[in-house]
């Protein structure tokens, strides 16, 4: 299937809901399914610290540091490459900024590098829905 429609996820105190998608992330033999915000305003994919730890990533072994700005200025971050699956699409590699902040503060975000380079996304805010499609070259 080349296109999949998703509904916004209702939020108890936020009437519109959030464009969340369940994404399966894998590193070596460890796999987790986590909800992620499809965020066209985010310049890059974000992976909170505890989610990375649950994937058996080792913070001390990381070598490719990232310089975050804005509200994340000064937050240590490393680039990590994970195998990702969003059903019903085939697996692909997504690069994340693994940041030293917990998921209670920052959600998993799917941003321009490189989620939006791999998928075309259409938002239908009035219908509280969005569509993800495989990129077309």
């Amino acid at each position: 299937m080349s296109k999949q429609r998703f509904s916004y996820t209702p939020h108890q105190r936020f009437p519109v809901g959030i464009p969340l998608v369940n994404i399966q992330l894998s590193h070596l033999a460890t796999t987790r399914i986590v909800p992620a915000v499809v965020d066209s305003g985010a310049a890059l994919n974000i992976l909170p610290y505890d989610v990375g730890m649950s994937l058996s990533l080792n913070w001390d072994n990381q070598t490719f540091s990232l310089d975050l700005g804005g509200v994340l200025t000064g937050t240590p971050a490393y680039a990590v490459l994970l195998q990702a699956v969003i059903e019903p699409f085939p697996p692909l590699k997504l690069a994340f900024a693994w940041i030293n902040k917990p998921s209670t503060e920052v959600r998993v975000l799917l941003g321009q590098v490189n989620f939006f380079q791999e998928f075309d996304v259409h938002f239908y805010g009035h219908q509280k829905a969005f569509e993800i499609a495989l990129k077309t070259d």
Binding site: L66, G70, V71, L72, K93, A97, V106
Partner: peptide, 18 residues
């Protein structure tokens, strides 16, 4: 509001890593 703004530099670095 989830979007962390002003991440252009980090995004370019992540692109290079990728």
């Amino acid at each position: 509001v989830f979007t962390p703004g002003n991440q252009e530099k980090a995004a370019a670095q992540l692109q290079q890593f990728l």
